[in-house]
Nucleic acid binder design. Structure first.
Lengths: 225, 225
DNA sequence: CTTTTTGCCTACCGCATGGTAGGCAGATGC
DNA sequence: GCATCTGCCTACCATGCGGTAGGCAAAAAG
């Protein structure tokens, strides 16, 4: 009876608007994307779009809301994997990576949000980051006490950098990957993205754990310590 | 006698425009920054700005040009430090980091450029990246043959990730650092930025070199291998 | 002194933008 | 059958945008 009585399985106009807006805003930025352009992409008139989203700013809010909602769907899966075992780290990180790799627009949108609305993002970070930040910090600090994690590591800073490398790495991959193309030194039959992500994971792990001998197997399998 | 007869040591109007434009575009993005706003910041009329820069797009080009020029000033210093010794890696990376840390607007502008103009940036990358990319790759590959560098490391991908962590890390630092604030686990009397950069350097080194025992001295001194 | 050039200005223009007002067909409720 | 609500539409508007035309004082050139 309210205004938001939508079923979850229709490819409704509203959802199509959100999808197109997501892509356009992620590609060109919020200011550079007119609601006219979004409406054109959907195939409706501008005023029809304004029926679903009373203002451009409202559309933007819903866009972020949707992204956060999707993230909250993944979060429990991530946290579940975050136990103390060594191989689990890869699982956690890969889950986060896959979230953004599945749709790089997510990373680009979020990165733009950080650049364009620093104050708002700072608020969001302070509210939402403590949940997983403290959990990860504890995980890392436990590892430090056990001796499996580099004692010189700064937990919060490390987490931040890994977050950055994932977010920005996937946001900029399509542009930056030209460096990989001209190198072409991959022996294995990997996608460039796979190659990119593998090295990302290797860096995160090599800089987290104390090394043994020659680590960093490119396989998904965990080589037990 | 031409139109660009400017001396290098005047705080000319043109330079003030470039400075304000740099900051505004880095903060809000190119599309979101009107030339009116830039003129206001400088303290002149919009049309006076258009006298120095015939169009907004031209101003933008000059902005990038200026940034590239500054980078080219630093580049030789970087390449000079890029020899084979182990401690030199830190010197090279720290030089790059300082370039962006000195004025984070550089990082933000460049990151925005990657997001907003992927095609152009791809061209620029292909033209300019080979110079240092191949040099660094050789340096790394030499290290791999000597056994000082992780053999599982993917040189191009590694370089790309380190570049990302520096660029995006410094571009987003002011926003993301709230995570550091709420942690406050620093024993030493460091700035948050120093702490952030130190961990950045530690990650880069720990994921590059094969470890010995407890590495990553926060000091600037090189502990010889 | 006169002419040209430089640097900044006022005045104005065409255009795309985000947003309002209101119409209108079809589905729904009574 | 009639009223209401939903979803999309056409028509219109005020605003701010990037950019053009041209004036005008001071400096430079002859």
């Amino acid at each position: 009876m309210a205004k938001t009585n939508k079923k979850q399985e229709e490819p409704s106009v509203r959802e199509r608007i959100l999808a197109e807006a997501m892509h356009l805003v992620a590609s060109k930025g919020y200011e550079a994307t007119s609601i006219q352009a979004i409406a054109d992409a959907v195939g409706i008139r501008k005023q029809s779009l304004l029926y679903h989203f009373p203002s451009k700013e409202n559309l933007h809010e819903c866009l972020i809301e949707q992204l956060v909602a999707r993230w909250n769907d993944v979060l429990p899966k991530v946290m579940l994997a975050a136990t103390n075992s060594r191989g689990r780290f890869e699982a956690v990180m890969r889950t986060v990576v896959e979230f953004f790799a599945e749709n790089p627009d997510r990373a680009r949108l979020l990165l733009r949000e950080v650049l364009d609305r620093p104050e708002e993002m700072r608020r969001v970070m302070m509210l939402h980051s403590q949940v997983w930040s403290s959990a990860l910090r504890n995980y890392i600090q436990d590892g430090q006490e056990l001796g499996s994690v580099d004692p010189g590591l700064d937990p919060e800073a490390y987490i931040l950098h890994i977050l950055t490398i994932i977010l920005s790495g996937l946001a900029t991959f399509s542009t930056m990957s030209v460096v990989l193309e001209q190198g072409t030194s991959t022996g294995r039959g990997e996608t460039e993205l796979e190659r990119y992500v593998d090295e990302m994971m290797r860096i995160a792990q090599a800089s987290l754990f104390v090394k043994r001998s020659s680590q960093s197997r490119p396989e998904n399998e965990e080589s037990v310590s």
